[in-house]
Design a protein around this nucleic acid. Structure first.
Lengths: 353, 353
DNA sequence: ATGAAAGCGCTAACAC
DNA sequence: GTGTTAGCGCTTTCAT
């Protein structure tokens, strides 16, 4: 069953090979391949013929090495492409990269901060023109020398720690404050707060936004309703059940990200109760969810587009102070309000016990 | 406002620089950096110190060029990461690549077949170790020489045209036949068929599966109900409206992919009618859609995982005949059956007019 | 317009 | 154990 399927990887032809076959000098091949100087018609023909015959394709790395030109490559450090939040960023970055005739290496940051740094250093060894990083946490001061030595970096969604560098982030504080204010204005005072680990600045900012909304309303936030380290939908569902079973259950929920939002949404739908829900992050088909809720939405792709454009300005040696771009958020009602048919989007009022 | 932010990209230090600072020879630096031979403790210390001081990081391309080692890079040619079908493939590929200590260049294939070939050739110039291609169509015979010259390629979701190469595809025919058979068994004989362009073999196979199901049931497929070139959700919705407005409307729909499936689903939900729907491709949160329907699902990530593993077998010079892996599909009921609460998954019977 | 020689940053031989 | 030399595949001087 195992048979040889091809002439076993003959060494790739080099320019020298092409030159020999074409009967010209190495340099002439180079000139023809790069179309840089005028070359005699007939010689050029011979070079083209030899190239095609041998299947020659110039070694990009070798030419970049000699000429000192760039690798026309940028790196993107990201957590998980199967999460649409990251996939949208990657997709947007890819568009910008393509416009700049640049290839995109997408590296998945590992579990911990060390893996992340190691992945970044690997990309530095590969001499990427620049780096887009969605940091998972940890200290980034070790990256300063790389930036100084010519590899610009832009941080996405979270600012770097211990390093002054460009970043594009969301207005997490305002988004969460708006969310909580909406719920408070709708008559809720007991709100279950589900956020992921507070190791992430995004989560701290969102929680702080909620606290501020309560303070502004002159309300006290019951800390027993604040749950941290909610990792995913399942955990969120469990917390919903736990909180609603308590003696003084919440009448509404705020979720720090779409993963927990989806878990809560599913739980509430299954219960058939009408606690209100506002979740950070919109997601696909949220408008078809079987129950009304509200999301804190923003331009997901812009995180990628803007940071990539910022990066290319750096790559093109534009000089400016480290910049932080903050993208606005807005509340958006989602979910359907009835089983059948199009209905006017109803505002999500509290109708609980 | 524009100020210099850094010492303006001093040339990156090379091994020669490190050697000079450390007061050792170039080769000693190389040995220390690669940890390949035993080096005197003190010299090694000096090298490490000089490396750290200068921020030295070995140029990967240069060392690969000299040593003839691989670039430890594979390329993935894909359409659009913001589509979860492709994102899941990319995510799965990334996992396998990481396990093989290989970086992943994700190139977005352009609109047409020429762009796709150009992107592939660019990756060949970069001497990727192998290529994973989700082809958009067109002829791939031009790639034969690249494969012969040592760049293995595995095709995902669609087989290459004009080329014998490895591929990992879905059982499109069986999936579509099962789907249509389900609808027929449920009593439907007039089924609206919405597929994308028949330029894609996947769509041709799926349509053929539907035709076969009809033939096996002894039914005639009304060609006026077969719509091709349905590009997306919007177009699908329009077609639903058109077909249902006809004098002999369908009582069920089959969709060739999730994009049109979502469009039809939304249309049918808005209408509040209960035509049946089976759509190829599952999607996130499909189980929470506000109306029952059925998907032809399969292991999305496996498309990436299996093809990447196949590719690495080729990269590791394992020799075997060009292989086609066909992944099975299965019907899966989705969508909720009532507005509130958990309910037993009801089979999707025809209850139309 | 073309070719010979040198060298990009690094590693493989080979000396020492 | 360490340094010198050559050379990976290519582009750049600089002759011709």
């Amino acid at each position: 069953m195992h048979t040889k399927s091809s002439p076993s990887a003959a060494r790739r032809p080099t320019m020298t090979d092409v030159a020999r076959v074409a009967g010209v000098s190495l340099k002439t091949v180079s000139r023809v391949v790069n179309g840089v100087a005028t070359v005699d018609q007939e010689l050029a023909e011979r070079v083209h013929a030899a190239s095609a015959e041998l299947g020659f394709r110039a070694n990009f790395a070798a030419s970049a090495l000699r000429s000192g030109s760039s690798t026309a490559t940028i790196g993107l450090l990201i957590k998980d492409l199967s999460n649409e939040f990251y996939a949208n960023i990657a997709s947007a970055v890819a568009v910008v990269a393509k416009a700049h005739h640049t290839q995109l290496i997408t590296a998945h940051s590992g579990e911990n901060a060390e893996d992340e740094l190691e992945a970044i250093f690997d990309l530095c060894r590969r001499r990427v023109d620049g780096l887009l990083i969605v940091p998972t946490g940890g200290d980034h001061s070790a990256l300063k020398s790389e930036i100084d030595l010519g590899i610009p970096m832009v941080f996405i969604d979270r600012k770097p720690v211990g390093l002054a560098a460009d970043s594009v982030v969301l207005d997490n504080f305002a988004g969460a404050r708006d969310a909580a204010t909406r719920l408070i204005n709708d008559g809720h005072s007991r709100i279950g707060i589900l956020v992921d680990t507070l190791n992430m600045a995004t989560m701290r900012d969102r929680l702080q936004g909620v606290r501020t909304a309560f303070a502004e309303a002159g309300l006290a936030l019951d800390d027993s309703l604040v749950v941290t380290n909610v990792r995913g939908p399942i955990e969120a569902s469990i917390e919903v059940d736990r909180l609603l079973a308590s003696s003084a259950p919440p009448t509404a929920f705020f979720c720090g990200n779409n993963r927990s939002g989806i878990g809560v949404l599913r739980s509430l739908w299954q219960r058939g109760t009408n606690e209100a829900l506002v979740s950070f992050d919109d997601f696909q088909l949220s408008e078809l969810m079987p129950r009304p809720f509200t999301v804190v939405r923003y331009d997901n792709r812009a995180l990628g587009t803007i940071s990539a454009e910022l990066l290319f300005r750096r790559i093109n040696r534009e000089v400016f102070d480290p910049t932080t771009v903050v993208l606005p958020t807005e509340l958006c009602d989602r979910g359907i309000t009835g089983l059948r048919g199009p209905q006017p989007q109803a505002s999500q009022r509290a109708r609980c016990t």
